[in-house]
């Protein structure tokens, strides 16, 4: 088996299944009723944290690839990013169903009125509560990235434009940390941990970017001297 085949048929499916484990555990806990007295809090913080974790893992792919020189790493990036989007979407859906829809008294879903009330209810929270505003911003960024994650979309957008668009992942990660930071009452240890992780992953890129910029004139100068 070539390393290409190993990635495709063994490693990727394994990572895929592993990434579903937290979701499976939360669903099992919810159905079995063993998430304690406050299952809503468990599934909300659980899916929120896994969104941040997958964002961090996704942002680790490129530094890992550069440092290890293992280009195969990049083959996992899209899947990991999509899992961040998946957990973020579940997180948002929990809010919509358990908080907003429940608050409306679970009106019939097929009605136009329900759709309007629900949109107003969700929109009102996004507008009124800054931590929800940033959280929703993070999700919208991830939505844009997920929607343009196919090979067809990359071709359609063109590599440069696609790459520029996908820098939104940095906005999503930062907004995600801010959302977490603003949602806790007093104990900031959790948000601080993720702020450090995302910060470190961004520092890598800033350093590389600065180095690349510095090396362009240097290269030009070398080329000029050689000719």
């Amino acid at each position: 088996m070539t390393s290409n085949q190993a990635i495709r048929w063994v490693l990727k499916p394994a990572v895929f299944l592993a990434a579903l484990v937290p979701f499976g555990l939360l669903v099992r806990g919810l159905l079995a009723g063993n998430l304690g007295a406050d299952p809503l809090k468990e599934i909300t913080t659980g899916t929120g944290l896994w969104t941040l974790r997958f964002l961090c893992i996704t942002l680790t792919v490129t530094p890992l690839r550069r440092l290890s020189k293992w280009n195969g790493a990049v083959r996992f990036r899209r899947m990991l990013g999509l899992f961040a989007f998946f957990y973020g979407t579940v997180h948002l859906l929990i809010f919509i169903v358990a908080d907003r829809l429940a608050g409306l008294g679970f009106p019939p879903l097929a009605a136009w009125q329900t759709f309007r009330d629900l949109a107003a209810s969700i929109g009102g929270e996004i507008y009124k509560r800054p931590y929800i505003t940033v959280g929703f911003t993070a999700w919208v960024c991830m939505l844009a990235l997920a929607a343009t994650s196919t090979a067809g979309m990359i071709r359609w957008l063109g590599g440069k434009r696609w790459q520029r668009l996908h820098r939104l992942v940095y906005v999503a990660a930062i907004a995600g940390v801010v959302h977490y930071w603003w949602s806790v009452k007093a104990d900031l240890r959790g948000p601080q941990t993720y702020a450090v992780a995302v910060g470190a992953l961004l520092v890598f890129r800033i350093v590389w970017w600065a180095r690349a910029r510095a090396s362009v004139p240097a290269r030009r100068a070398r080329r000029a001297a050689a000719s």
């Binding site: 009723g33 007295a37 406050d38 299952p39 809503l40 908080d99 429940a102 608050g103 509560r129 603003w182």
Partner: peptide, 15 residues
């Protein structure tokens, strides 16, 4: 940061 209009009576997950 959140409404106090409703509550979840634990262990309910619905607000």
């Amino acid at each position: 940061r959140w409404t106090q209009a409703r509550e979840r009576r634990l262990p309910s997950i619905f607000q």
